[in-house]
């Protein structure tokens, strides 16, 4: 009799451990997703912080290019206003496009192009662009792992119990799908 009680206890303990394991696994995985989201957020914020500085520098050389300057300012405002991550990322993409036209504009203004401050900001912003891309990649990786454990057996069983749903991937804007260029 005592033997059966021990076996029963062992089985119950095992089941409890499995339940705790899967609960923790889902928590860890969704924390990872949240963390990678905040990484994207940090980079977007950094980019937005650099923009006023850039605008000031550009204004010094190309005052009458109001349209492009306004575009950048608006995109920055939209980014700061955005609440959830998907609208933030979307605003970030818009800002990215607007910044590209600023850097293209600089081709017409040799003095601006040679400005040290401008060059520095350009480098910083392109570095941030890389970081945003990598942070998004990691976010999607984290989502993939989470979704895999939500939808494969036996995770799918526990996902139902803890009512966890697969999460959405971040969509990549068409402009960002281009192949990275290689410098020599």
């Amino acid at each position: 009799m005592a033997f059966f009680i021990w076996v029963l206890l062992a089985i119950l303990l095992l089941i409890a451990i499995i339940f705790v394991y899967y609960f923790n696994r889902f928590v860890i995985l969704s924390n990872r997703i949240d963390n990678s989201l905040s990484q994207i957020d940090v980079q977007l914020k950094k980019r937005a912080d650099l923009v006023p500085n850039l605008i000031e520098t550009v204004k010094g050389y190309a005052k009458h290019e109001k349209k492009i300057i306004n575009e950048v300012t608006e995109a920055r405002k939209a980014l700061l206003k955005a609440k959830d991550i998907s609208s933030k990322v979307k605003a970030g993409d818009q800002l990215q496009t607007a910044l590209k036209s600023i850097f293209a504009l600089a081709e017409n203004y040799p003095n601006l192009k040679a400005n040290e401050n401008f060059l520095h900001l350009q480098q910083e912003l392109s570095a941030i662009e890389d970081k945003i891309a990598y942070a998004r990649q990691y976010y999607n990786d984290a989502i993939l792992i989470y979704n895999n454990s939500c939808t494969t057996f036996p995770g799918v069983f526990f996902a139902k119990i803890y009512s966890k749903q697969p999460k959405e991937y971040l969509k990549i804007a068409p402009s960002e799908k281009s192949v990275p260029k290689i410098e020599f």
Binding site: Q43, K131, Y134, Y138
Partner: peptide
């Protein structure tokens, strides 16, 4: 620094 920061973001 940039390369490492990028890889930190990519690897978590």
């Amino acid at each position: 620094f940039h390369a490492v920061e990028n890889m930190v973001l990519a690897s978590g």
